[in-house]
Write a protein that binds this DNA or RNA. Structure first.
Length: 292
DNA sequence: AGGATAGCCTGCGGGC
DNA sequence: TGCCCGCAGGCTATCC
């Protein structure tokens, strides 16, 4: 469920907590959630230094729903949270009872300020749709894994979206969920942005008029930015690195509101399955053929 | 080649 | 109360 806004909130809270920190140790508790490659791209057994042990954390970057922890020595750890993944930071020897102990797959000890404050970062993911990928450099990540992603949805420009949708024969909802088209949008924000833009989720992606694509691009950016401001959407599992919940779920116009009145016209919101995903929309405000 | 589909995995809520 | 089933969904592999 973490989509772009939630991942961005994790990025910010994680960066604030660990940038400049020295990774004193790293432990992988489940080997099958992590993939490591050498400089030639060959699969190798993950060692502690792949997980940045012995490195200093420089910064945390994001593309779409994926994070990259970047070390000062150039090494990179890519983290995907999948459906239920969490990166949680807690201070050592503080009451840590609020941090679940089950489904923890990796753990890091971080020292900041010359050893005065030690923090613990954990990666937990009950459903294990997420994972870790290690790289020798940011360039290697960008040339391999991130090459498969489209432009980041938070800053998507109208021309980029138009280019990505041109000639596509699938529905606009399917296209928005395709990370190779646009990186960062999942089921929640696809429905929210399409409602906001007044576009039917079942519309053929390649047949949307240019000015509607422009409208959609701006509504995608706006919806995601608003969600980030609200700390993301917490339906059940999502927390940022400091353990905080988001509040954007209270502002969903359509997601999870099937059968309830449309906030714009008052008609009943409809539920359908589009692109194998539960989709909620307003048939009146999101007409199949645009009113004009 | 692009689009549709199955499967991965766990937790929870509804129904009986 | 307890069990079972369906559903949630990002992404990859596989098929069409």
């Amino acid at each position: 469920m973490p989509e772009l806004p939630e991942v961005e909130c994790v990025r910010r809270s994680l960066q604030a907590a660990i940038s400049g920190g020295f990774v004193a140790g790293a432990t992988l508790l489940r080997r099958d959630i992590c993939e490591s490659r050498d400089a030639q791209g060959r699969l190798v057994r993950t060692r502690a230094e792949h997980l940045l042990s012995g490195s200093t954390i420089d910064r945390v970057e994001r593309l779409g729903k994926q994070l990259a922890l970047i070390a000062a020595n150039g090494r990179v750890l890519c983290v995907h949270l999948g459906m239920t993944g969490q990166l949680l930071v807690r201070r050592e020897r503080s009451g840590e009872s609020d941090v679940p102990r089950d489904h923890v797959h990796a753990r890091w000890a971080i020292r900041r300020n010359g050893g005065s404050g030690e923090a613990c970062v954990i990666f937990r993911d009950p459903r294990r749709f997420g994972g870790l990928w290690t790289f020798e450099s940011l360039d290697q990540l960008k040339r391999s894994r991130w090459r498969l992603l489209g432009p980041d949805a938070l800053t998507i420009r109208a021309e980029e979206l138009h280019e990505a949708l041109r000639d596509r024969t699938c529905s606009i909802k399917a296209a928005l969920l395709d990370q190779g088209t646009l990186a960062g949008v999942g089921n929640i924000y696809a429905d929210e942005a399409l409602f906001s833009a007044g576009i039917s989720p079942g519309m053929c992606a390649g047949r949307i008029h240019a000015e509607q694509v422009t409208t959609l691009a701006s509504h995608i950016r706006e919806t995601l930015a608003l969600a980030i401001e609200s700390g993301g959407s917490t339906l059940r599992d999502y927390r940022d690195a400091s353990g905080s919940r988001g509040t954007f779920q209270h502002r969903h116009a359509v997601y999870g509101r099937a059968g309830e009145p449309c906030l714009r016209c008052g008609g009943a919101l409809r539920r359908a399955t589009i692109a194998q995903r539960t989709t909620v929309y307003c048939p009146a405000c999101q007409p199949r053929s645009p009113n004009r």
